[in-house]
């Protein structure tokens, strides 16, 4: 046969393209959006208290050597209410949870805490979503795992589900 091997090159090239496509089809690409904040220091902020009797929150609080969970939430947010039992479970497991309330009022917050329990050591009042924007958080609720030196270990977008609680506790223990 004339031409020989050369004539099979188009078929080979096609096979390579095909292998690539098959790979993508059977092992779909990971479309998780990874947080750009992981590994970065917590941006500086200082929010006043929202409720009398509960302190506000400043970023300095995350540099006391103890890893903590920072929860961005709001009383008007339905998934936040769904998340409340998981936060209570985390608190029961010894996790310190600091909160930043987005565009909230003291009265609505008191009702919210009365309904779902109060896992928060402090609740900062962020009327302008400034902390939320600085953290690159796009909605409520979102949680950040912060080590004792103020470095972000994990960004959790959306409400924490019951099956995710043990993993978060383990990450915090590991960070100690």
């Amino acid at each position: 046969m004339k031409g020989g091997v050369k004539l099979w090159l188009p078929l080979l090239a096609f096979a390579a393209v095909l292998a690539l496509i098959a790979m993508a089809l059977y092992r779909p690409a990971d479309r998780t959006v990874y947080s750009a904040m992981v590994g970065k220091p917590l941006p500086a902020f200082d929010t006043p208290p929202l409720l009398s009797g509960k302190p506000g929150l400043a970023s300095a609080a995350f540099r006391d050597g103890k890893p903590k969970l920072l929860n961005i939430f709001a009383s008007w947010c339905v998934p936040c209410a769904a998340e409340a039992p998981q936060l209570m479970a985390l608190k029961a497991a010894g996790v310190t949870i600091e909160g930043v309330a987005i565009r909230d009022t003291p009265q609505a917050m008191r009702d919210f805490l009365a309904r779902g329990g109060d896992p928060y050591a402090a609740i900062g009042d962020d009327k302008a979503s400034a902390v939320q924007l600085a953290l690159g958080s796009s909605g409520v609720p979102e949680s950040f795992l912060i080590d004792g030196k103020g470095t972000i270990l994990l960004q959790h977008v959306g409400d924490i589900r019951a099956d995710e609680v043990p993993g978060i506790v383990a990450r915090l223990k590991a960070a100690q």
């Binding site: 046969m1 004539l7 188009p10 096609f14 496509i21 089809l25």
Partner: peptide, 23 residues
């Protein structure tokens, strides 16, 4: 998978035909 199989059949078939016949 269905369309992938069709691609193999048609394009692969045509290219194989090309390789064997064009000589």
């Amino acid at each position: 998978s269905f369309i992938l199989a069709l691609l193999v059949l048609y394009i692969g078939g045509a290219l194989a035909l090309f390789a064997t016949r064009v000589g």
